[in-house]
């Protein structure tokens, strides 16, 4: 039996990129001097400026947050300081992070329903604001302007009803709109409704 060995050939080709072998490239001196010039320029500029333009020394200087900044949640109050929330569960339904836990209970008065437990796990919260969008009662808001607090234990990041209501203020929003809603609707036509 005859065996022939064939030289292995590959069809793959390697494209060789020529690199210019100039003296300047070899010595790298030009690049080094250029680089030093750039850093030196920045150094002297910044020394003359005393304070870099972009840095904000946080605790002393603060950025002004935009009006629609989303901070920690808060639960709004009724006029009698009870919670506005009626435990409709729209916010946990809308929440993409599943960070809201509500257990409903019956109230003795005309409000009929309120949350017995209202907990937000601020570590899970992705600060998307969908809960606020979903709320039909102006009960939950994120306009506190507060940051998440530093916590030692994960449980501490779960804010309960008391914590959330502590930040709340009274809201007198009327479900279905203010009495003069018709004029406003005329001036600002809502594209969702005919």
């Amino acid at each position: 039996m005859e065996t022939t060995f064939r030289k292995r050939t590959s069809k793959a080709t390697v494209k060789v990129v020529p690199r210019p072998e100039t003296l300047n490239k070899e010595l790298m001196l030009g690049g080094i001097i250029q680089g030093l010039a750039v850093t030196m320029r920045h150094f002297f500029q910044n020394v003359a400026r005393e304070k870099p333009e972009v840095t904000i020394n946080y605790p002393e200087e603060r950025l002004k947050y935009p009006l629609r900044n989303r901070g920690l949640h808060r639960l709004m109050h009724r006029e009698d300081d009870s919670v506005r929330c009626v435990a409709c569960m729209c916010c946990p339904t809308a929440c993409p992070a599943h960070c809201i836990t509500i257990v409903a209970e019956e109230t003795g008065n005309g409000n009929e329903k309120r949350p017995a437990i209202f907990e937000i796990d601020e570590l899970r919260c992705i600060v998307c604001g969908l809960c606020v969008e979903a709320c039909p009662c102006d009960a939950i808001r994120m306009d506190t302007g507060e940051h998440m607090h530093v916590v030692d234990r994960r449980d501490d990041a779960i804010l309960g009803k008391v914590d959330l209501m502590k930040r709340g203020i009274s809201s007198t929003a009327v479900q279905g709109g203010e009495p003069n809603w018709q004029e406003r609707v005329k001036t600002v036509p809502d594209p969702r409704f005919r």
């Binding site: 850093t39 030196m40 920045h42 150094f43 910044n46 020394v47 304070k51 870099p52 333009e53 972009v54 840095t55 020394n57």
Partner: peptide, 10 residues
């Protein structure tokens, strides 16, 4: 400090 100044930092 110098590196900060060179890199536009504080």
């Amino acid at each position: 400090k110098q590196s900060a100044k060179m890199q536009d930092r504080g």
